[in-house]
Design a protein around this nucleic acid. Structure first.
Lengths: 380, 380
DNA sequence: AACGTTTCGGAGAGCGCTCTCCAAGGGAGT
DNA sequence: ACTCCCTTGGAGAGCGCTCTCCGAAACGTT
C-alpha cells in the first residue's frame, strides 16, 4: 500500500515534438451510437407525472424533498421516477432557481499570459491536485460540481467576473499564484461569493483559509533546537509573498525564544536553484552552521544537493528542515524533514465556507487558519 | 526560471489532526455585499434589445454570429451589449440548445469506494495535473468549461451516466485508474460522447488516445545498448495493465533485435517498494547486470535506492532507465533517464476529439497513439 | 351544524434564451 | 409596370423546471 503508481497505469515517453500524433486504428463496429439514444427524448417531469398520475408540481415536490406530500404519493412518484429513469435537467432547474450547483476553482495567475507554460508547471505540482482532492471531498457529498477556470491576463479577469455573475458558477474558490493578485478584490467588489486559499497580500474583504505559517516555522525552529543544533541559519522565500514573510518572522521569533537572537539568512525565490545557491552563500559566510531552515521544500532539496556536493553530511553535520511537505520532500536525499500544511483540509474547509456563503450571501467574511504539523524524516 | 515554486506561495505544515481549524479573525467592513449587486437583476437579452431598439431575436443573432444581420445593426447591438454589460445566461441557453458548453473529466476508480484516500494519492500525482493542463489548453480557446467528476463505487457509475445524459456535460474525457474499468463500456452503451485516455484493457467501441508504450520501451532498450550495456534486465509492471504489458513486450522485442534474446526480469506493481524489492531480487539472481529497464519511474526510484544501498554505482556499474518522466524521475538520485509520454498533448488531443464527437455524434470511434521520447539524465 | 384552520395537490406563470415561421421591403427578371 | 425571389428583422412558441397562488378536502372548534 505504499504510494501507489496511479500515473503509470497509462503512460509512456515524452515529446518535445509537438504534433507527433498519428491516427492508428479505428475500431468501428456498426454505427457508433445506439439509435434509441439519439432520438428518444429523455424523460421529463411531465412524463413522470403522467405515469404517476399526479401533476408536475407534485413530482417536483417529491424530488426536491419538500414536505406536504402524502407518503403514499411519495412512493408512487419515486417508483415512476425509477421506471422512467428520470434525471432532472440541470439547465432548466438552474434557470429558475438561479443556482447552478457548480462552484468554480479559479486559478489566477496575474503575471502570465493566457497560454503561458507556467500553468502547466503549476498543474504538475502536487499542490494543485491536493487542493482539488480536498475540494471534491467536501463538494461531492453536497452534490456540487467543480468547474475549473484559469485566468491569466487581466483582460480575462473582467470576463471571468461577468461569467461568474451570469450563472457559470454559484461561487468560486480562488487560487492565486502571485501575491497582490487583483482577482480577490474584483470578486469582493462584484459581490460574488468567493473564498481564497492563502491569505491575500493586501487585506481584501473576502473570506479565506490559510495555514499558520509563522507557527509552522516555529515548529521547525523548535525541532532544530531539540535536535541539539545551536548555530542555525535560514533560507527565506521572496519578501513579497505573505506566506514567505510569515515563515521568516515566525522562525526568527521562535529562535529568539530559544536565545538565538540573530539568524543568519539569505533570500531565495522558492526554486531549486535558488536553494542550491542560497545554501552555498549561507555556508560561505557562516561555515559552522549545524542547522538550516529552508522556507520551502524545493529550495531545501536544492540546498541538500549543494550540501552533498560540498561534502557536508546530513543530518550529522548539518540538519535541514523544509516547508510544504511537497513531493520534493520525499524526493530529496536524505528525505526531508518538513512542515506540512493540511492542504486537503484547508480546501475542504474553503468549499464548506463557500457553500455557506452561497446559502447566506450576507454572511460576514471570515478567515480560518489551520495548524501546520512537523513531518520528521531523515534530514534532521 | 528553473522549476518555479508554485505551491510554496501559499503553504505551511501538515496535519494528521483532522479538525485543527480555528476561526481567527473576521475582517468585515460594512455589509459584505455591494447592494447594487444583490438586487439589480442582471441584464437580459430583452434589456439589450430595448436599448438597441431591435428585437430579442436580432440581438441573439448578432451575439451568436449568425449572418443575415445588417452591419449597422451589428454595431448598435454590440455597443448596447457593452453598455449593459450583458452576459448570456448559460442555463437559459443550454435549456434550448441542449448543449452545456461543459465537458466532464471523469476520474474513474472502480476498485475504491467513494471516500477512499486513494483518490487523494491520485490527485497529488503530477499525472492528474498534466492531464488537466492539456485539456484546458484545448478547451479554453473553444470556450468550453471543464468539470470534474469522480466516480468510485459501481453504484455511482449508473448515476453518472444518468447525469451525463441529462445535461451535466456534453461529453466526457475518462481517466480510468484501473484496468478493466467498466465505465468506458457504460458510456459506449449509453451512446454518450466520450474519449478515454489510455487504451482500455478490453476493446471497447469508444475513442481513446494512448502512447506507444511498446515503442517507448524500445527507446529505452536502444539507449541502454547504445550506452554499451550488454547484460540488461527489466522490472515490469503488473501483468493486467495494458500499458505495462506493452512496455514489457516492446522491450523484449527490441532487445531481441539487438541480439539479447533473454531478458532477466521480475514483476513489480508500480510502487516504490516493489522497485526496491525487484531490484534486489534481480541482482540476487543476475549479479552481473549492467543495465535495467524499469517500467515506471516510481519503481525505478526504488530500484535506485536499492542500488545505492547495495553499493552499486549508477550509471558506472549499472545503468537504469525508467518510464513516465514523472516527478519521481527528477527526484531520484541520480536523476533518472526515462521515457516520457506527451501527456499534455494527449489530453489536448482527447479534448479535440471529444469536441469533434460532440459536434458530429455519428462520427466513427478513433484511437490516436502518441510517440514517446527518451529523456536522458544521469542514471544511464 | 356551521365555521375556521390546516394540509395537500393542481394550475399556470414565468426563468432567459434560441429558432422557426412569417411579413415586409428591395432588387432583378420579363 | 408587374411578379417573383431573396434578404432582413420581428413575433412568438417553446425548452424543462420551480414555486406561488388557489381551491378542495380534512380536521377541529364552539
Amino acid at each position: 500500500m505504499a504510494g501507489a503508481p496511479v500515473s503509470a497505469t497509462l503512460l509512456a515517453l515524452a515529446t518535445p515534438a509537438a504534433e507527433s500524433a498519428l491516427p492508428c486504428r479505428s475500431d468501428t463496429r456498426g454505427p457508433t451510437r445506439d439509435v434509441t439514444t439519439d432520438n428518444a427524448r429523455l424523460p421529463t417531469l411531465e412524463d413522470v407525472a403522467r405515469l404517476a398520475g399526479v401533476s408536475r408540481a407534485t413530482v417536483s415536490r417529491v424530488i426536491n424533498g419538500i414536505r406536504n406530500v402524502n407518503p403514499e404519493l411519495h412512493e408512487v412518484v419515486w417508483s415512476a421516477v425509477n421506471a422512467t429513469g428520470y434525471v432532472a435537467n440541470r439547465a432548466a432547474r438552474s434557470l429558475v432557481t438561479r443556482r447552478t450547483g457548480t462552484i468554480a476553482l479559479v486559478v489566477s495567475d496575474s503575471e502570465s499570459h493566457d497560454d503561458d507554460p507556467f500553468m502547466s508547471r503549476f498543474f504538475s505540482d502536487p499542490f494543485f491536485g491536493r487542493v482539488v482532492g480536498g475540494l471534491m471531498s467536501a463538494l461531492r457529498p453536497a452534490g456540487i460540481q467543480l468547474a475549473l477556470q484559469l485566468v491569466g491576463a487581466d483582460q480575462a479577469r473582467g470576463q471571468l467576473v461577468g461569467d461568474l455573475r451570469q450563472g457559470q458558477a454559484d461561487g468560486s474558490v480562488v487560487l492565486s499564484l502571485h501575491p497582490g493578485d487583483t482577482l480577490p478584490q474584483l470578486l469582493a467588489d462584484a459581490g460574488l461569493a468567493g473564498v481564497v486559499i492563502g491569505r491575500p497580500a493586501r487585506p481584501v474583504p473576502i473570506s479565506h483559509v490559510d495555514v499558520a505559517n509563522d507557527r509552522g516555522a516555529a515548529l521547525a525552529a523548535d525541532h532544530l533546537v531539540a535536535r541539539g543544533r545551536r548555530r542555525i541559519g535560514m533560507i527565506t522565500g521572496p519578501i513579497d509573498v505573505p506566506a514567505s514573510v510569515d515563515r521568516s518572522s515566525g522562525f526568527r521569533a521562535a529562535m529568539a525564544r530559544h536565545g538565538q537572537l540573530f539568524v543568519p539568512s539569505v533570500t531565495g525565490n522558492f526554486t531549486y536553484d535558488s536553494g542550491d545557491r542560497g545554501m552555498r552563500e549561507l555556508l560561505a559566510e557562516y561555515p559552522d552552521l549545524d542547522g538550516v531552515f529552508v522556507a520551502n521544500d524545493l529550495m531545501a532539496q536544492g540546498g541538500l544537493g549543494a550540501l552533498h556536493e560540498l561534502g557536508r553530511r546530513v543530518p550529522d553535520e548539518i540538519a535541514v528542515v523544509g516547508f510544504d511537505d511537497s513531493s520534493a520532500a520525499l524526493a530529496a536525499r536524505p528525505q526531508l524533514t518538513t512542515v506540512r500544511q493540511p492542504l486537503e483540509d484547508m480546501a475542504a474547509e474553503a468549499a464548506r465556507m463557500l457553500m455557506a456563503l452561497i446559502d447566506e450571501p450576507r454572511r460576514e467574511t471570515t478567515a480560518v487558519v489551520f495548524e501546520p504539523t512537523l513531518v520528521v524524516r531523515s534530514s534532521s
